[in-house]
Amino acid sequence: MQVLGIILVLVSVGTMVGPIAAVAVMYSSNLEGLVITPQIKDIMNGNSALLPINSGSNNNNNNYNNDQYNYTDSNGENSNNNNGFMSPVLVSSQIDSTARTVTVVANVSNPLGYDLTVNSFNSTIVCSQDNYQIGTIRLANPVMLPAAQTAQVTVTGYWTQDAENHVLTTHPGATSIAVNLVDTTIDVNGIVVQSPAPISAGSIPIS
């Protein structure tokens, strides 16, 4: 009976202490490695492959070419050589004056080795000169951005009759008006970023 008691105590201690002692011995020359793995160290140092910090610039000036209400990027092709983190590059836009809508197609690159989903995007378009509300813009449908690839994102904008009247009366003779996006909300994989500050969105042509 006493032997059994000793065996049970040894089993209790052995099962608890054994694995921890073994790993401590394995990492005896690098005790920090017991808790801080190379992956965590890379993230802490900012050079992790999981979270690349890429400062690629977006050279697109976001200006629309109003020829036949269609836009193609200045290279005449829809390829995207922009490596900026989630920076959209305008591909094309279509304006429907009757329905007062604009459909914008942009390339968005995902530099991560992990699929991302843009669940929603919406914003208010205002005139950059007088902050008059021109319309709204929103993502048509959620878009998946495959890992390390570029995907096309389609956003649809709407403007009002009041906005048209405002442009005709306040900016007579103008061929284009500069616009800002305010109250912008974007949801990527459940991370929701809201920006009340104006974001320059280039110029919209007026026919």
Binding site: L34, V35, T37, Q39
Partner: peptide
């Protein structure tokens, strides 16, 4: 994190200890 599993050796050892117990 972003689909990559991060294994911490000390936690793994504690898990094995719990499993054996």
């Amino acid at each position: 994190l972003l689909g990559t599993a991060i294994t911490i050796p000390l936690i793994l050892a504690i898990n094995i200890a719990a499993l054996l117990t």
